[in-house]
Design a binder for these strands. Structure first.
Lengths: 140, 140
DNA sequence: TATTGTTATACTCTATAACTATA
DNA sequence: TATAGTTATAGAGTATAACAATA
């Protein structure tokens, strides 16, 4: 039998869990023609009408350079609109079509969430989220 | 204040924790001229002299198509050697140079591991690993 | 027929640098 | 000076298909 010390390490377990959850969700989001990061952005706008790109970046820990093309696509597809708030930033809002996608995306994420929680023994379920929240990158 | 429901979801927390740990480790592994996946493979060979690529793939949940170029590079750099076991598979072994890299990599991973655990409140530490191990992808 | 390994390729996400325009 | 947004580009990881050689 193969001896794999990585199996006893949190870092590796997190990595594998992340790819497994992504692999789970991606095909479903794909039916909405959305990527994972698209869905995150849409959901954030759904809950924060008028949010700006820089606020999205800080909330989701994404570099603004990576948000720009996402917003561009969502805008071009008619899922969001950009409303200027001052000369350099725009408040983002969902169109009706965008709201539906955001809500469906959120439902998909919640469904994946429930599926994941169900796999975790009940006694261990409660602490996991809080534990992992402490591992977020130090925000600059 | 921004309302971010993703913050209360395991999937998102796992994702952020994974990228944070990767961002932590990558620069250190880079000093050894290794990527994360290189390190994983080297560590697995360190603990399993003579392991084959297909066994590595099953242990690390990597597609064989993605392992091939890694092995190729490690071989070309003189970190591993391939010893034929039958006509189609090779047993992999570390060279002396490779063993040192593997051990240093493992130390780096263990150090990152300790750093991560330290961030998690003591009461929550114990269950996290076991909880996450249940989220691995279903092996085909 | 199934398995091992390889090549080629595409997709997604992340990171950095350089830039414009505005505050 | 600092912030918001954009463009371009590179790096890393993952996924699939197609293939040759071997079991």
């Amino acid at each position: 039998m193969v001896q794999n010390p990585l199996n006893d390490m949190l870092g590796f377990a997190i990595r594998r869990a992340a790819t497994a959850m992504t692999a789970d969700l991606t095909p479903h989001l794909s039916e909405l023609k959305l990527r994972m990061t698209d869905a995150h952005v849409l959901i954030l706008i759904l809950h924060n009408k008028g949010i700006t790109q820089s606020e999205i970046g800080r909330s989701l820990a994404m570099a603004s350079a990576n948000i720009a093309p996402i917003i561009g696509r969502l805008d071009q597809r008619g899922l969001i609109i950009r409303i200027p708030v001052d000369g350099r930033s725009h408040g983002l809002e969902l169109t009706e079509k965008g709201r539906k996608r955001a809500e469906r995306s959120f439902a998909l994420l919640q469904s994946a969430e429930a599926g994941a929680l169900k796999k975790i023994p009940e006694a261990l379920r409660d602490g996991v989220l809080e534990a992992l929240q402490n591992l977020k990158a130090d925000t600059p």
